[in-house]
């Protein structure tokens, strides 16, 4: 029973492949069109993933700076330490004493002489606080809260950067969603038409099959396989396009990154994303075929 079933499906799979190869140019063209259509949103997605990764790398992840009052005592510092440890939003924090800060200033900015001439250290003790990557409103709320803690002179959240990045990422997400939706519809439409033409050329075969006892699923199957295979091929094409374009971009980036002594590398789709891409493309092809078959098959009634 299962063997027969497998046999039938294997046979239909081969049949669909044969049909695909029987008109290589036409089918290659529509695979290419599908590949390009899928590669647009998937490409934007890949770029965004990269942007996200780079932003993490360059510590644009949300950070709050806490500057303490000049007269803050060791007790105050310990108290803040405890509060930070207890806060769930805080991922990591670092204490920078005023002496450390001054030393750093000397080293970094070559202000050696200026510092030497200071009567006393004007810098405050400070904490840098890395927070979870939640939305900026929550972090802003946390900052306002911290401002009221004792011995805190000033709590600063450099939100402009984070907000800009968040807006950009949000924009990207919406763009991807819109692109994905529109182009998915386009792919379904392409497949709808491809299958419609196939059904027209195979009208006689469908009619005869119905006459000698073929069930609707039997008649549908080769068309569905055809759609799925073509969708899959479109997905592979999209993957190739993205990888190829990223390769070109990487070569260019390498030159720029060299100037800034940074390691900038755009990565292609991850393994999981690649699998999702292929599955989604296959499903789109199948869906287009399914809708087309449902629309056209009942019109062919044997006489």
């Amino acid at each position: 029973m299962i063997r027969t079933w497998l046999n039938q499906h294997w046979f239909v799979f081969i049949l669909a492949l044969k049909r695909l190869l029987s008109a290589p140019v036409t089918n290659l063209l529509s695979i290419l069109v599908m590949g390009i259509a899928i590669s647009l949103p998937a490409g934007v997605y890949t770029l965004m993933e990269n942007l996200h990764a780079i932003s993490g790398q360059t510590s644009i992840s949300p950070q709050i700076s806490l500057f303490l009052k000049q007269h803050a005592t060791q007790d105050d510092i310990d108290h803040i330490r405890t509060k930070l440890t207890e806060n769930k939003l805080v991922v990591h924090f670092q204490f920078i004493s005023k002496d450390q800060a001054l030393y750093q200033l000397q080293l970094d900015n070559g202000l050696n002489e200026v510092v030497q001439n200071l009567a006393h250290n004007p810098l405050p003790d400070a904490f840098t606080v890395d927070t979870q990557d939640v939305n900026t409103d929550a972090i802003d709320q946390l900052r306002t809260d911290m401002q009221t803690w004792p011995a805190i002179e000033h709590a600063q959240f450099d939100s402009a950067w984070a907000k800009r990045l968040e807006a950009l990422l949000n924009f990207g997400r919406i763009l991807i969603l819109v692109l994905f939706t529109l182009l998915s519809v386009a792919i379904v439409a392409i497949m709808f038409n491809t299958i419609r033409l196939q059904i027209l050329t195979r009208q006689k075969e469908i009619e005869v099959s119905k006459l000698i006892g073929a069930t609707d699923p039997f008649i549908r199957r080769p068309f569905l396989y055809f759609g799925a295979i073509q969708g899959f091929a479109g997905g592979v094409t999209a993957w190739l396009i993205i990888t190829f374009v990223l390769q070109i971009l990487n070569d260019e980036l390498q030159a720029i990154a060299g100037l800034y002594a940074m390691d900038l590398q755009l990565r292609s789709l991850e393994y999981g994303d690649t699998v999702s891409l292929l599955l989604f493309a296959t499903w789109l092809g199948w869906l287009g075929a399914r809708v087309s078959v449902a629309n056209h098959l009942w019109q062919i009634e044997p006489r």
Binding site: R3, T4, W5, N7, Q8, F11, V208, S209, I212, G213, A214, T215, F218
Partner: peptide, 11 residues
């Protein structure tokens, strides 16, 4: 072959 395919005969 067609009627046999339809009834799912083994090759």
């Amino acid at each position: 072959l067609l009627p046999l395919q339809i009834s799912g005969f083994e090759q």
